[in-house]
Every structure is written in C-alpha cells, then in structure tokens.
C-alpha cells in the first residue's frame, strides 16, 4: 500500500473497520512510515481530547427525576385502564351487545321517523278550512259574482297556471261566484256554492303530492280521497291529473251527499 492510499484509510483503520487484508497492508505501511505514525498519533490524541471534553456533559439531575415521575404516572394510568378494561373473553359478548344496541337504535330511529311522518299533519287542510270560514262569515268576498259557468272559466283564464273548468254543476246548487285564492304560494280557484242553508267551498289547485298526513284515506268508486276535519269544517280532497280538488263545508252529511254526486 502506498502512502497516499494509506492516508485515505487512517480513519477507518483507527475505527477498526478495515478488512483484515487491508488492515494488514496498512499496518505494514505504517510500521515503516514515520509520517503516518505521526498522523495516527495526532488523530488519536484529538479523538481522546474530543471524547474527554464531550463526555464531561452530564444530564441535569432533575431530568432523570422527571422521567421517573412520568414513568410512575404512566404506570398508574395504565393500571387504572387495565382495571376497567373488558376481559378478552367477554369482548365478543360486549361487541355483540354494542352492535345489537346500535341496530336497535337505528330501527327505533326509522320507526320514530315513520311515526312522525304519519302523525305530522298536512298544512293544506287547515288552510282550506280557514279560507272557507272567511268566505262563510263575510260578505262581498267574491272576485266575480256569477253563476254562469262559461263566464267564470273565462274570468279565471290566465289568472291560474292550469286549465280550469267548473267540474260539477247542478240545478239544486246555487253557484254564487268565484275568487282567486292562493295555496302553497300558487294561484288556486275558490268557488262558492249555496245549497239550502248550507254554504260550500270548492277549491281547485296545483298539487304534486299524494301524501296528506292527518287525513283519513278512503276509496269510493275506485277513486281515492282524503277526509279531514279542521275548525269544525269538514274537508274532502281528491286528486286528478296533477290537480287537487277539495270540498269544504261545516255540515258533514250534506258534504258527503254532494261529494257522492261528484265522486
């Protein structure tokens, strides 16, 4: 090994990490090279000075104490955790129970939602009842006072967004007139009838839903209809071709008699 090669390996040689072959070759060179011997001596001295100085640095006493205290704290907490930990043989039972509880919770939630849906009252019936009460208790409420079917249809044309026709007419009934009303923020037709002492309201309005919570669903002549009572007013509601129709009256018997003619 030449001198230049030897100087490259001095660190590794002093670290005792050279291969046996290289180590022997280097040692052979060192034995005969005073420069390398001097370098090694200097390097060894430097290493020893470095070590001596750096090893002086000790850990402050309180660091060790703090670590010991924290370790004790970790142990106390772990003992408490273990005390309340579910034994491994009971874990499957616990997991099953927990799963069962979650399942029950979900099922209860679905039932509660369905029940709420079923018991939630539709807002259309109270409105229909209120509009009829206003008509029955006040005079001059009609927008157009006419018993002529054609005239009424013409008057409503363009005022509501659906093609309107007077659905029934009977000589026994007095058609008093009509009023442009509003249901669910859309234009609706409100017609007024008189039959003896009894006053009727007949509504035609746009209606997309067939869900009327709070009303009784019935079938008659293959048609389904909904009956509800609000503020002592009886209401019959049915759907046809995307439109809703409703009859409102405070006399149940008379209402059904008229309804039976229409339905």
């Amino acid at each position: 090994m030449d001198h230049l090669e030897a100087t490259k390996h001095i660190y590794t040689f002093l670290d005792d990490e050279l291969s046996q072959k290289k180590g022997l070759a280097l040692k052979k060179h060192i034995d005969s090279c005073s420069d390398c011997q001097q370098r090694i001596a200097t390097e060894n001295k430097l290493r020893s000075v470095l070590k001596e100085n750096l090893l002086k640095q000790k850990t402050p006493f309180y660091v060790k104490e703090e670590i010991k205290n924290e370790m004790e704290k970790i142990d106390r907490e772990s003992v408490i955790r273990e005390k309340y930990r579910i034994p491994s043989q009971l874990r499957p039972i616990f997991v099953s129970m927990l799963g069962g509880l979650i399942f029950l919770g979900v099922i209860s939630g679905i039932f509660f939602y369905k029940w709420q849906e079923a018991t939630r009252e539709s807002t259309i019936f109270p409105r229909l009842a209120a509009k009829h009460i206003v008509f029955a208790s006040q005079e001059n409420l009609v927008d157009i006072s006419s018993s002529d079917m054609e005239e009424l249809v013409t008057w409503f044309k363009g005022k509501v967004d659906f093609p309107f026709s007077v659905p029934f007419y009977s000589e026994e009934l007095d058609l008093l007139g009509g009023r442009l009303s509003e249901l669910h923020q859309k234009g609706a037709v409100h017609l007024f009838y008189q039959w003896g002492d009894c006053q009727f309201s007949f509504f035609t309005f746009e209606c997309a839903t067939k869900n009327f919570p709070g009303a009784h669903r019935k079938e008659y002549n293959g048609k389904e209809y909904y009956i509800a009572k609000y503020n002592d007013q009886f209401i019959i509601l049915w759907m046809s071709n995307g439109l809703g129709y409703a009859l409102v009256c405070d006399d149940e018997e008379e209402l059904f008699e008229i309804a039976s003619q229409i339905l």
């Binding site: 750096l54 090893l55 640095q57 000790k58 850990t59 660091v63 060790k64 670590i67 010991k68």
Partner: peptide, 10 residues
C-alpha cells in the same frame, strides 16, 4: 435503559 441517559442527553 435509564443508565444511558447521559449519552442520550449529550
């Protein structure tokens, strides 16, 4: 382990 604290701290 704790016997090595000086080495680690250093």
């Amino acid at each position: 382990a704790l016997v090595h604290i000086d080495s680690l701290y250093r």
